[in-house]
Design a protein around this nucleic acid. Structure first.
Length: 160
DNA sequence: GCCAACGTTGGC
DNA sequence: GCCAACGTTGGC
């Protein structure tokens, strides 16, 4: 069997900072948390494509939308336990432990950016044209990011 | 299988 | 508060 080609993937994860901000992740035990609660099939499928070490742009939605920090995938997908908890918002009565419907990964904070890179600035940057995040009405909370866009966002964070 | 109604996300 | 863009639900 041929060896798998070297693979570096990059992603963007959205979070409402009032729910769980990048600083919350930074302060978490091991700077790591389980990314649970995803209940969208497309997003779920991306979660299952993730590998340990993949890069993550940590995006804040809400009042001050923008990229807040850099994280990485710390564990590949495993069943999201909240789907089995009737008290949880993400409870899914149709999901079974034998065939779980929803997955999560572990995410670890790796780098505080010198500043939050505002969404408006991303939109204004021609090098980022075509980024999923910038599509009108884009709501997907888990998105793949092209390496060129990854590099560009990180460069913008260092600018000014 | 179609589609209308409804709910949610999230920017502005 | 408004609205665009979906995803889901349920009737038929």
């Amino acid at each position: 069997m041929p060896k798998e080609p070297a693979r570096t993937a990059h992603w963007l994860l959205k979070s409402e900072p009032s729910t769980f901000s990048f600083d919350d992740l930074w302060r978490a035990k091991g700077r790591t948390t389980g990314w649970n609660g995803v209940r969208n099939y497309q997003a779920r499928n991306f979660l299952r494509d993730m590998r340990v070490g993949d890069g993550v742009l940590y995006y804040h939605s809400g009042d001050e939308p923008g990229v807040a920090g850099i994280a990485q995938i710390a564990a590949v997908a495993y069943p999201d336990p909240t789907q089995f908890d009737p008290q949880d918002d993400g409870y899914d009565a149709a999901s079974t432990r034998d065939e779980p419907r929803w997955y999560q990964v572990d995410v670890r904070a790796v780098e505080k950016l010198p500043r939050l890179v505002p969404l408006a600035e991303l939109r204004a940057d021609r090098a980022l044209a075509g980024m999923e995040l910038l599509r009108r009405g884009s709501r997907l909370s888990v998105q793949p990011v092209l390496v060129a866009h990854w590099d560009r966002v990180r460069a913008l964070a260092q600018a000014r």
